[in-house]
Structures are given as structure tokens and as C-alpha cells.
């Protein structure tokens, strides 16, 4: 927003999971991310690309078997070094999260309003009546009709869209500065999806939230994000301003994703464009660029070294040593 420093600053983050027998899997292999207050970043990638793991690292939500490297600074605090007590105060208050399936993320045995009030009371030590008032305000804010009555609903008495609205209200309960959204619209109907996206966009503007939005849907990313970071095999392969990444995609993987969209313009009966091959096996990544086995432009050098991010435009970078060749060949 203003010239303030980044609220989220992730440097060279690595996350390894022990897989038993002394072996481990590197789910995130050196990710750099920065996010300014009031900015929305979409982390785009397929299953296993490390996008959710990166998101969860911002909350340190991993099992004990996870090993972190690098640094994660949020709001000037080092998350990876934070003691447990501080961590509990930080979660929900500074950073909060929305889950994929609101049907699973709300406790079925408590009224929704009570769950929100509980979270508020936990952080701010205010009375139950005050907390309920806050919950009512939040329900109005996320546009749940007849909010007063809906507060007394159990999750199963709500529709999917309304549950996700309630989940957003819960996440915003303690006025966080950063909101993490882990595929918040994947479990919803297409019509409800767009409503929830618009709501998120609006709340983000009103409250000046910094949002990290994990998704595998390029359309969703374009809808909400200021910037896009495309992940593949635990690394960011391309990052830049939203429109720029879509229009001038440089990395062959991003180009492949864009080409495989089901657009309205596609002729009926024409085959969908796909990226050949299958997502990488994280236990057995190729030595160089992890996309090289599937890349139409790969040359011998791609299999030798991990390509660094190369600047291709203002704020736009791609991790491909054949940036020019790739964009020329595939966008032609």
C-alpha cells in the first residue's frame, strides 16, 4: 500500500519430511516470497508442487517430522524460531487461515457463533457477550443473511457457501494482518465460488489484508491476485504481476498451464491441450530443472543445473535458462 516493508518475507525456505528409514522428501526446495501489506499473491501449482506446504510453513503447522530451512519473517517476527507460547498468540491474531472444505473445518458439535466467539475470547480476553457482538458484526460483514439467527446454527445446518462465509468470518475474527487461503473455493459450486472470491477480494481491500491464495486454478488466481507465483516441484518457477504472467508467460510450465485451460473459445470436440508426462516424484527429482523431463524446450544444460530466476520484465522473473527460446517457441 504505502512504501512500508514487506509483511511476509520468506527467504530460501526448505521443508523436508522424514519418510521413515532415515529417508526424507524435500517438499519445498528454496522458496523466496515477499508480500506487502494489502497485496494478494496467488500460489499456483499442481498437487505436490509444494504450494500448501509453503503456506503452512507461514503458520508452522507441520508435523514434528518436518525440518525447516531458510527463514520466514511475518510482521517482523521470525516464525521458525518462535517459542510455542508466542506461536499460539501469533496464530489467528497476525496470520489466519481459510481451509479448503468448510464442512470439515468447522466443528460439528458447536454452534458456529460460539466457535467464532471462542477464538475472539482466546486472543482478546473479552466477555462472551462482547465476543458474540463481534461475531455478529463479522457475519454481517461476510453477508450471511439473518446473521443473528445464523450464529446459533450448527455447521450442518448451513449450505456450503454459507459455511465458507462463516469460515472466513472465523478467520477474520481477530483482525489478522495476513490471511492464508488454502484453495478456499475448490469444494464449492461454480456459482458459489465466484461469490466467495468476490467477497474475499472485497474484504481484502476494505481491511487492507495481505492475502496468500493457494490454488491450482489459473482462472481463480487471475480473479483475485495482484501477483502470481507458479510453483513446480517445490520451487517457484515463475513470479510476477498477475496480468504480466498471463500475457507474457516465460516459463514453459506456465505456458503449458495456460495452454491447457478450457477456454470458451475452444471448438467443441477439439482435444484439450495437456502437458505431457506426470507430476514429478519428489523423492526422485531430476538433478537439474525439475520440469526438464516434461519440457518441450529442454536441452542438455537443463538437466545439469537448477536454473535461477531470470528477470524477464518489471517484477517478473522465471526460472528457466531458455526463457527467450521457450516464450518464442510456445507462444508463437
Amino acid at each position: 500500500m504505502n512504501g512500508a516493508g514487506p509483511i511476509v518475507d520468506v527467504k530460501q525456505l526448505t521443508v523436508d519430511f522424514a519418510t521413515g528409514g532415515g529417508a526424507s522428501v524435500r517438499a519445498v526446495a528454496g522458496v523466496d516470497l515477499t508480500l506487502k501489506p494489502g497485496e494478494t499473491l496467488a500460489l499456483l501449482g499442481e498437487s505436490g508442487s509444494g504450494k500448501s506446504v509453503t503456506l503452512r510453513a507461514l503458520m508452522r503447522l507441520h508435523p514434528k517430522s518436518a525440518r525447516f530451512g531458510g527463514s520466514v519473517n511475518v510482521d517482523g517476527r521470525d516464525i521458525l524460531a518462535m517459542p510455542a507460547g508466542d506461536l499460539a498468540r501469533y496464530r489467528g491474531k497476525i496470520v489466519s487461515m481459510i481451509f479448503q472444505d468448510p464442512g470439515l473445518a468447522l466443528d460439528p458439535v458447536y454452534r458456529v457463533g460460539d466457535q467464532i466467539a471462542e477464538a475472539v475470547m482466546r486472543h482478546e480476553g473479552i466477555s462472551r457477550a462482547e465476543a458474540r457482538k463481534r461475531a455478529l458484526g463479522l457475519f454481517e460483514r461476510v453477508r450471511i443473511p439473518s446473521p443473528d439467527r445464523r450464529l446459533d446454527n450448527y455447521p450442518h445446518e448451513m449450505s456450503g457457501g454459507m459455511r465458507q462465509r462463516a469460515m472466513i468470518a472465523l478467520a477474520l475474527a481477530c483482525r489478522p494482518k495476513v490471511l492464508l487461503a488454502d484453495e478456499p473455493t475448490t469444494a464449492l459450486d461454480a456459482t458459489v465460488q465466484i461469490q466467495v472470491l468476490l467477497l474475499l477480494r472485497e474484504l481484502q481491500r476494505e481491511l487492507g489484508l495481505a492475502v496468500i491464495f493457494v490454488t491450482h486454478d489459473i482462472g481463480v488466481a487471475v480473479e483475485v491476485a495482484d501477483r502470481i507465483a507458479v510453483m513446480y516441484g517445490g520451487r517457484i518457477v515463475e513470479t510476477g504481476p498477475c496480468a504480466d504472467v498471463i500475457r507474457n508467460a516465460a516459463h514453459p510450465y506456465t505456458l503449458g498451464l495456460l495452454a491447457s485451460r478450457t477456454g470458451h473459445g475452444a471448438a467443441k470436440g477439439s482435444r484439450l491441450v495437456t502437458i505431457p508426462g506426470s507430476p514429478p516424484d519428489l523423492t526422485n527429482l531430476p538433478p537439474g530443472c525439475s520440469f526438464s523431463p516434461r519440457c518441450p524446450r529442454a536441452i542438455e544444460a537443463c538437466r545439469q543445473i537448477v536454473p535461477p530466476l531470470v528477470v524477464t520484465g518489471p517484477g517478473h522473473a522465471a526460472a528457466c535458462i531458455r526463457v527467450d527460446a521457450a516464450s518464442v517457441a510456445l507462444s508463437a
Partner: peptide, 25 residues
């Protein structure tokens, strides 16, 4: 379950999670 993680995300400690979400269910 996600709601246990959601509680953790909103800053609940182990005791609160057991008392509310585990016991309740």
C-alpha cells in the same frame, strides 16, 4: 480433522483443543 487444525490456526493451545474439539466430539 480440519477443525482441529483450524482451531490451532486460530491460536488454540493443546489444552483448549482437547477440551473443546476432542472432548466435544
Amino acid at each position: 480433522r480440519d477443525y482441529v487444525e483450524a482451531a490451532r490456526v486460530s491460536g488454540a493451545g493443546a489444552f483448549t483443543i482437547v477440551r473443546m474439539h476432542v472432548l466435544g466430539n
